[in-house]
Design a protein around this nucleic acid. Structure first.
Lengths: 142, 142
DNA sequence: GTTCCTGCAAAAGCTTTGCAGAAGA
DNA sequence: TCTTCTGCAAAGCTTTTGCAGGAAC
């Protein structure tokens, strides 16, 4: 088992974060599911295992993980932040019909644009919007 | 004068939007300033010319312009939407120190990634974050 | 005269904060 | 024991909505 509770506890300790039950479970969920949930969706999923989990704990935990660079924050829409455990550079596609977010590989080794010479770049983001294959199929059947 | 009130009135008529005084002024401001203001900043700027302008009119107007594809919505942070008149494909850089948004040219003719084969792509976005030249200079002087 | 737009106030939705009690070191 | 975390409620922000009066056609 790659992302076991023991390994994640170690990861939390290294970052100076106390490995509470809630934190381990939330990190474990994100490490083992290649999805892009919102805070609300994390809360909904985790309530199954942690019925007393609160909204504020989810927000505080996710923010702490982003701060510690254990999770990546994805901003595509202004009314929701999504999170993922995959820290490697990749692009995101959000379907305008079903809302699903898909990963895709893309070359991030873009040479520094002329207009940004002398700028310090910390973070590069690429996202597309459109309609996913599965929603396009559904449309044809209607 | 490129983006005169007359030309913009015509543009609004073409899109089926009534060329009210407020709409013309807001569009004129965005067309003649290569900036990336939030709704709040548009309101602040326009109050100088239109003292009775309301927040809700600004939001409704900007949304109507985006809907009519006269403006582009820029989402970099989840707590603010920015707007620009420049519809051509380009990247954005947001400075984490001063908050300023800069444009840069970048090749958007990326071949469709394998993972997105069969997907319909409507919108491509690239944004970087970091520290701009001017803020880097300031830091050195402290 | 109709239809659409503006502006006020209220509401909505996501996220953050304050604080008392609980858990972890 | 001391520090940090959790969970509840309340507050904070940006954005949206409902509605009456006003502007545009």
């Amino acid at each position: 088992m790659k992302n076991s509770a023991e390994r994640l506890t170690e990861e939390l300790n290294k970052k100076g974060l106390r490995p509470s039950h809630q934190r381990i479970k939330i990190l474990e969920y994100l490490a083992n599911h290649p999805c892009h949930p919102t805070a609300e969706q994390v809360l909904f999923e985790m309530k199954k295992e942690l019925p007393t989990l609160s909204k504020s704990t989810v927000y505080k935990t996710l923010n702490a993980f982003v701060e510690a660079e254990m999770l990546r924050e994805i901003t595509i829409e202004n009314n929701e932040v999504r999170y993922e455990y995959n820290l490697a550079d990749h692009g995101h596609f959000k379907c305008e019909k079903c809302g699903e977010v898909y990963d895709f590989e893309i070359d991030f080794d873009i040479s520094q644009p002329e207009e940004l010479s002398g700028f310090k770049i910390n973070d590069k983001n690429i996202y597309f919007k459109g309609v996913c294959k599965s929603c396009l199929k559904k449309k044809q059947n209607i």
